[in-house]
Amino acid sequence: MNRLLLFIPLVIFALMGLVFWVGLGIEDKTSLPSPLIGKPFPEFELGVVEDGRTLTTKDLQGQPALVNVWATWCPTCKAEHAFLNELAEQGIRIIGINYKDDVMKARDWLKAYGNPYAYNLSDPQGKLGLELGVYGAPETFLIDSEGIIRGKHIGDLNPVVWESLGKQFGEMQ
């Protein structure tokens, strides 16, 4: 038997690995930047969880903020909540979008775990979420003082993520 034949499995494996690697690379490039970055925040007119008043897109403008999409049914949001509280203490403006959720449940949640949000927009049907291209909670958007979306993070915010996101946020201010 030829020694070279014994390399066949290794070569096949290496080729498979290469296909995976290239494939994952392509996927990374196309999917990560959100098509919304650099665009104005979508139009909305929604009620506020805390007091029921109605707000529109204009109310977002004025100063940079984090827009955090969350829900009481989402376990990762619970994990992320403590860190949001920390950020709020540092004086960072966070606006919540309570996504596909029940207002009463949301109020209980905020009472139980603390409220890091300037206010929470109630999006029970997920219409604003659809506009924003939200796939699931939590997701966080960075908007500047003109209400233009500057950044996006899918998944929970934590100190590691905040290292780069926070830098970007600091530059906006």
Binding site: K78, A79, A82, N85, A112, Y113, G114
Partner: peptide, 10 residues
């Protein structure tokens, strides 16, 4: 999750 752990689990 410190310093403020959740009251209950998911």
């Amino acid at each position: 999750i410190l310093p403020s752990p959740p009251q209950d689990g998911a």
